[in-house]
């Protein structure tokens, strides 16, 4: 090895040796297949067991419908176009409720995380509300607001706000203390520190809270729609389920459950999962398996 090593080349060599390498392998198609096939398999197995139980006629037809009967209920909703209205009524309510929850929960979470008095005062209250099933608010909401959208939004808010606020608080609590200190050394003021350091640093935890907040708002909405039914409210998925019960039509009830499940899981898979994966991947944190 020559003695006069070129200037900067040792460094370049070190950089090349030290730089972490990406070791994920396999084609895109295979990775997606490995993700998608197991849940599909699980659904197939479940339906097969269901079909077998139905064929064995353990339970009378009015208790356990045939998978085909449930499917034809759903198919009929699709061909008649009624499914669009069911989805629209419920999903737009859930989305609006979620958006309002976000507007309330973010300042609330920021206040709890940053102000000791607020944390001591209402922190435990917010955590407690998270474990109170928001459906418990339905009777009160109906008495206060009547059978209308406001009652439903009230229940959705009480379901989603505590989850989102708590997610933000735990996200902020998990920010390594060195980061705000570095921010201050770099010249961040109070609001600069929140805007440029704290909020982005808390994002992964906050996204977890958002995901949970969505689940809670969907759940609360279904409970509210199921209990608070009135022609004024329009027909959402909860009401559809309720109608199935009134008509003693078990295949309609099952179809309602399937649709509620599909929407809840669908939004999580289409919106929250990709969002979370993008954020985590950009930070070199592995996506949740």
């Amino acid at each position: 090895m020559p003695l006069d090593v070129q200037e900067g080349s040792v460094e370049a060599g070190l950089d090349a040796l030290d730089t972490p390498v990406d070791t994920t392998e396999g084609s895109r198609v295979r990775r997606i297949a490995a993700r998608v096939l197991p849940p599909i398999g699980a659904v197939v197995v479940l339906v097969a067991i269901w079909q077998a139980l139905w064929a064995a006629a353990f339970w009378p037809e009015f208790k356990l419908p045939a998978p085909a009967a449930v499917w034809s209920q759903i198919w009929q909703l699709v061909t008649s176009g009624d499914i669009a209205e069911l989805f629209w009524v419920s999903v737009h309510r859930a989305v609006i409720g979620f958006a309002i929850s976000l507007l309330i929960a973010v300042p609330l979470g920021l206040a709890i995380a940053n102000l000791t008095v607020v944390r001591r005062g209402i922190g435990p209250l917010v955590s407690g509300l998270q474990s109170l099933p928001s459906v418990a608010w339905v009777p009160a909401a109906i008495l206060w607001f009547g059978l209308n959208d406001r009652a439903i939004y009230w229940v959705v808010l009480l379901g989603a706000v505590p989850s989102i606020a708590n997610g933000l608080v735990s996200g902020l609590d998990q920010v390594p203390p060195i980061l705000p200190r570095v921010g201050k050394a770099l010249g961040a003021g109070r609001f600069g520190g929140i805007r440029y350091i704290l909020l982005p640093a808390a994002l992964p935890g906050f996204l977890g809270g958002l995901k949970q907040g969505w689940a809670f708002s969907w759940r609360s909405l279904m409970a509210a729609e199921l209990i608070a039914t009135s022609p004024e409210l329009g027909e959402g998925l909860g009401q559809y389920l309720h109608n199935g019960m009134s008509l003693s039509d078990i295949s309609m009830v099952f179809a309602g459950i399937v649709l509620i499940f599909v929407v809840g899981v669908g939004i999580e898979l289409l919106v929250f999962r990709p969002l979370e994966n993008t954020v985590l991947k950009a930070r070199g944190l592995g996506p949740a398996r």
Binding site: I178, V182, L186, G192, A282, G284
Partner: peptide, 29 residues
């Protein structure tokens, strides 16, 4: 002028690129 500080840990902001980290104080200013 404002002292530049380097800590024991690099403490880079994990959501920003290298250039984004260098730009951060300028953005805040």
């Amino acid at each position: 002028s404002r002292p530049a500080v380097v800590f024991q840990e690099a403490a880079l902001m994990p959501w920003l690129t290298a250039a984004g980290n260098v730009e951060l104080p300028l953005r805040m200013a």
